[in-house]
Design a protein around this nucleic acid. Structure first.
Length: 458
DNA sequence: CTATGGCACGGATT
DNA sequence: AATCCGTGCCATAG
């Protein structure tokens, strides 16, 4: 306790971290970034201290940032939408754990979440010769966000003046680590290397992989003919590939045009909570720190002393901005949850068009405030997907999903013009050219190549 | 001739 | 001020 205040105050520390000086607006930071900032501040500013204990929800004993019931318990009582805040450490434990808000949260390991390269390196390092470390590092930094290798192994071999086989050996190691197939040069190679991990494969799989072009276009008959398989065999192989293999190893969900990587903690979690027929939406926001941040009371008493005044001011400022960030964020999410309730609970097609400006008007915030708050933050939906908050504002998303279902249910391949007409009919007036764009975004092939495969049975 | 993708422009959004 | 998005025009492929 006293060490805090007696700790020698270094003279240099007038030049405290520049980041701290401009903490007026913390809204643009993600929870993780904010945690780092706060840790920095705690280390440098003796006027700040953390009280470890947080208030607990009297009903269920979950830690909550403010007094009162936690969101889950509160939701049991009344409201439709409940926003509450819990500390990040706790968040770490609840991450990936059971979705049942009633149940106790079992805590899986709350380990740090590394980037892709680190993640891979940790796995292969036991098998890696010391001499090959540089090669591995080189390879790993050349991976793109999908986990595919951007440089050719030959170049790397030349760079290190070593035989190609050595580079390839390291590359094999990387391909065998999870996510499987990283470090491949192409999607095809990635798929093939993933195959090695299945003890038995449908026989037609390799044939399919040799004709990725056709596979993408669903020209199953063509592949069948070329390789002496029957079309159903190829179809089942294709299904197997879709379900078990991933052409972009590091991309979490493909098939959707989403590029979300799984190794991240969301800043917010949405959970539905059902109670006698009604569904309340519980919004859990994570606090960046585990305790309550406050100004060291001893400091407050001696604050007349000019020398310490700077620290004190700074600490006050930080706490104030923090509180501001927190309330603003809560208001924002409460509103957002209310407006986009259906989207959160029932998926993409229920996304309502919404602009940041409109939300700003509702909440009497400046619109740039909203922009900052939304940027770079992520939310976890009830279905487990982690999406950027900015998706709540994508006006075209519902049109796109309408388009998807339209194509899925068409009886004959519709041309873009026809699709445009159909969508206009449904209340989405869009130009023909726009359909083309959406199609490519969703990975839907042009009408001419959409052979009508009648596999809609179940 | 029809369907589609590329380029680029203007208006809205951030 | 910078960026994103829908759309029109035109070239090209089938």
């Amino acid at each position: 306790m006293f060490q805090q205040i007696l700790r020698p105050i270094q003279a240099q520390h007038t030049s405290t971290s520049p980041s701290l000086a401009q903490t007026m607006n913390l809204l643009h930071l993600t929870t993780d970034e904010l945690r780092q900032q706060i840790e920095g501040a705690l280390a440098q500013n003796p006027a700040l201290e953390v009280i470890e204990s947080l208030p607990h929800c009297p009903a269920c004993n979950r830690p909550v940032a403010c007094k009162g019931l936690c969101g889950v318990c509160a939701a049991r009582q009344e409201a439709q939408t409940i926003v509450f805040t819990s500390p990040l450490e706790y968040a770490g434990k609840s991450r990936g754990a059971t979705r049942d808000p009633y149940g106790e949260i079992e805590a899986p390991e709350a380990e740090e979440i590394p980037g892709l390269a680190v993640h891979l390196l940790r796995q292969i390092s036991p098998e890696l010769e010391k001499a090959d470390r540089a090669i591995a590092a080189h390879l790993l930094t050349a991976l793109d966000e999908d986990g595919l290798l951007q440089t050719s192994p030959g170049e790397i071999a030349a760079y290190f003046h070593i035989p190609l086989s050595r580079v390839e050996a390291v590359r094999r190691l990387i391909q065998r680590a999870t996510p499987l197939g990283c470090g491949s040069r192409t999607s095809q190679e990635a798929l093939l290397s993933q195959c090695e991990h299945f003890s038995s494969l449908p026989p037609a799989v390799t044939a399919c992989l040799e004709h990725l072009e056709w596979l993408g276009q669903e020209k199953f008959a063509a592949i069948a003919q070329q390789n002496g398989f029957s079309t159903p065999e190829i179809e089942s192989a294709a299904r197997f590939i879709r379900q078990n293999l991933n052409p972009y190893p590091a991309r979490a969900w493909w098939g959707q045009a989403t590029r979300q990587v799984t190794y991240q903690t969301p800043d917010v979690i949405f959970q539905p909570l059902e109670r006698n027929g009604r569904v309340a939406l519980v919004v859990e926001i994570f606090l960046p720190y585990a305790g309550q941040l406050r100004i060291n009371p001893l400091y407050r008493q001696v604050n007349q002393d000019g020398e310490w005044r700077a620290d004190l001011e700074q600490a006050r400022q930080l706490i104030k901005s923090l509180r501001h960030r927190q309330t603003a964020f809560e208001m924002l999410l409460a509103r957002l949850a209310a407006l986009q309730r259906d989207f959160i609970l029932h998926g993409e097609n229920h996304l309502r068009p919404l602009t940041r400006a409109r939300l700003a008007e509702d909440l009497l915030f400046h619109e740039s405030t909203i922009s900052r708050a939304v940027a770079a933050k992520t939310a976890q939906l009830p279905n487990g997907h982690i999406i950027p908050l900015s998706r709540f504002f994508e006006k075209n998303r519902s049109v796109r999903s309408a388009l998807k279902t339209l194509v899925a249910e068409e009886t004959r391949p519709l041309s873009d013009d026809e699709l445009a007409a159909a969508l206009t009919q449904l209340g989405y007036p869009v130009a023909r050219r726009t359909i083309a764009k959406y199609r490519s975004m969703e990975g839907i092939l042009p009408a001419s190549q959409r052979k009508h495969t009648t596999l809609r049975v179940p």
